[in-house]
Amino acid sequence: MARHLELELEKIRREVLSLAAYVEDIVVQSVISLETRDTEKAVKIVSMDQYVNEKEVDIEEACLKVLALHQPVAHDLRFLIGVIKVNNDLERIADLAVNVAKRTIYIAKEERVMLPFDLNAMSNEAVRMMRNTMKALFATDVVLARQIIKEDHIIDEMNRHMYQAIFLAIKEDPNRVAVYINYFSAGRMLERIADYCTNISEDLIYMKEGTIVRHNPSIAGFNNK
């Protein structure tokens, strides 16, 4: 019984890590398409979403099957609950990356504007968060997971600055409001991707330690989230 359960859980683990790697690639490619105004790449990214949606459903069904048939407890239960949540977060990250690609398709049609914020820095930060999250997920590294949660404020700060900068830019040049809003939207998606990375990190800590650290920095092991 236990051996059979272990095999099922290992299969799910491989599936979710495979999905995670795929989603990481979508995020990286979407950021490149935005920075380089690459419409062709952006269109390809939009088409990649279907695979993610199908895999998300497959993984969830596999988890439900194990829950129903094996009634797991303790770390097996935490693993499955964690996978269900991480799986959902990965699907949402892919949606956000696809949304960045859709913004790219619009932006690429328009004349270039002087951006009032550092889009590259924001993109790099989102990708860095995503890559670290994948590293933590692959190695079940709760130290790195805690570091990721701690560093979420960096992109939050960039997002706040972006809002102020875009707001002023629109006031100064109302004719370009649509382009600015598309950039704002893309930036906002990048910030949301980083938020989902912290969610995955929190779920990883729960899976490994059984502690729910969400909304509670003192339990997470730090106080300056």
């Binding site: 236990a2 359960l5 407890v73 303790a74 770390h75 239960l77 935490r78 330690e209 059984g210």
Partner: peptide, 15 residues
């Protein structure tokens, strides 16, 4: 049944 503190407990309840 969600986060036992002892490894023996965990091994037993997870089969």
């Amino acid at each position: 049944f969600t986060r036992p503190q002892n490894k023996q407990t965990e091994d037993y309840i997870t089969g």
